[in-house]
Computed example of a mutant assay.
Amino acid sequence: MSQPAMINRYRWYELVGIYGGIFVFLTFILAPFVEGFLVSLKPLGRLFSSPYRFWPENGSFEAYRTMWVSVPGFARYIFNSFFISIIVTAVVLALVVPAAYAFARFKFRGSGALLAAFLAVNMFSGAVLLIPLFRLMRSFGVLNTYFAMIVPGVAFLIPSAIWLLRTYMMRIPRELDEAAFVDGASHFYTLRRVILPIAMPGITVVAITTFIGSYAQQFIFALTFNSKSEYMPLPVGLFAYFGRQEVVWNELMAASFVGIAPAVIVIFFLQRYLVSGLTAGAVKQ
């Protein structure tokens, strides 16, 4: 007789506890998004009505239409956020892939201290370095440009990307490198033709996390280093409009959901690569 699956060996109260914990966790994660979406459907005059109604009475998608008129340049803000995130992701990958390979394969003096320094960078908030970065950007004359928002984004996302991809590459057998070296391959050729195809799931994970991180951290850099509307990303564009007058909450929520749509679309189409990359990195020997 075949052995029962491990999942069937849980007692009924253990299953109740597991699924109950998952339900509570998802409730706390999804509740703000659900409430924000419902606010975008409510008429402005009924947002703070009492008693509270979970499902909006006379709800409609009118705010999704009017916010395009209420927020001048809204489409431009979305383009700026998407453009900045794409450039940041491309630059980070170009720098991180060879760096992660070097840290995973070579032992050189100061490598441990350098990795520790990369880790320490993630412990500092970007706000701590705003004044030095502002002075540096002003000295180079790149304020009010895309460059002023791309460079800080790259600098703050590289450390975590190196750690993540280095861990993945360390799981790739060294025998593959040695076999390539026996055939006369250089380190660069080995990285390009041997390691990269195998590490592609891990690189995809790094690309997705970098894109999301860049899309999420644009506010503080753009608010400090840019004052021109043509370069504003979405968070600052919404803040510039809704932060200087009465807050129209339903239109703000509608604009927020439309604004995060590009990131959601990217994650939706790449989610299978994200899952395969995480699981592949967990089982490689």
Rank of each mutant, 00 (worst) to 15 (best):
L274D: 05
G126K: 12
V34E: 01
A185P: 02
S276Y: 06
R193Y: 14
I267V: 15
I208Q: 08
V71A: 03
T27A: 15
V236S: 04
E57R: 11
I7Y: 12
F37V: 07
I162A: 04
G126R: 12
A185D: 05
E178C: 02
G202K: 01
I158H: 01
F219P: 07
L143H: 08
S50G: 01
Y64D: 01
A161N: 02
T66C: 10
P173H: 04
F181E: 04
E178A: 11
T204C: 15
L270V: 10
P4N: 12
F242H: 03
E57N: 11
S276E: 07
I7S: 13
W12L: 13
V266P: 04
A254N: 04
P159Y: 04
A104N: 05
V275S: 11
V91A: 09
F156P: 09
V151I: 13
Y146K: 05
F225A: 07
E35I: 15
L115Q: 06
L129M: 15
F239Y: 09
F257E: 06
E251D: 11
A75Y: 10
V236N: 06
G213S: 13
G153Y: 05
D177Q: 08
Y52N: 08
L252E: 01
V34P: 04
V71L: 04
V71K: 00
F25K: 09
P159D: 02
L223D: 06
L44A: 15
F257S: 07
T66Q: 09
P72G: 02
A222M: 02
L191M: 14
F124E: 07
F211P: 07
R174W: 13
N8I: 08
Q245N: 14
A116C: 10
L44Y: 15
L238I: 11
G59L: 15
I162E: 00
V121R: 04
